[in-house]
Amino acid sequence: MNIFRLTGDLSHLAAIIILLLKIWKTRSCAGISGKSQLLFALVFTTRYLDLFTSFISLYNTSMKLIYVACSYATVYLIYMKFKATYDGNHDTFRVEFLVVPVGGLSFLVNHDFSPLEILWTFSIYLESVAILPQLFMISKTGEAETITTHYLFFLGLYRALYLINWIWRYYFEGFFDLIAVVAGVVQTILYCDFFYLYVTKVLKGKKLSLPA
C-alpha cells in the first residue's frame, strides 16, 4: 500500500459519498445518469465476487463492502425512492453498446480463462467506460450542477492516482497488470476533457455549462 493507492481509494470513496449525499440532501437525482450508476453497481458486483474466495486484508474487505453497499444504495435512490426526479429523457446512452463489446473482450483478453477471472476482467473493462452515459447526459443537457462536477472530479482523480500507484508498484514491487493499466489509462483519458472544464470553470466559481 502506497500513498497514491490510498489517496486513490479515498478519492473513489469521496466520489461515491458525494453523490449519495447530493441525492439524499436535495431529495433529487436530477442530472445524474442512472445508467452509469447501474453500470458501476455491475462493476462492483462482478469484481468483488472474490470476497467469497479470498481474504486480502480487513481494509480490502471493508472497502469492497462499502463500495458495493453505496453503489446499490445509489441505484435504489435513483430508480426507486427518488424515481420521480430521475431525468430519464436525457439518460439515453445505449448501454448495450458498452456491455456487449466489453463482455466479448473479457472472454478474449484475460489473465486466466476461469469464471471469476473473466468476471474480474469484465468489471475492469466496464469500469473504464461506465461513466460514458453520465458524460453523454451532460453533453446533451449542456450543463451540470457544481456538486455533480465535484463527484466526477473525484471519480476521475481516483483512476489517475491509481496510474501513479501502478508506476510506483512497477518500480518498487515489480508488480505489473497490463489489463488494469490499459483500462486505467483509457478510463483516465475519458475524464481529460472534463478535468479541463473543471479547472477552468468550476474551480473559478462558474457553473459547468457547455456552449450550445
Partner: peptide, 10 residues
C-alpha cells in the same frame, strides 16, 4: 490451480 488470481487492489 487456484480458484482465482488474487487481486489486492480495489
Amino acid at each position: 490451480h487456484a480458484l482465482n488470481i488474487p487481486h489486492d487492489e480495489l
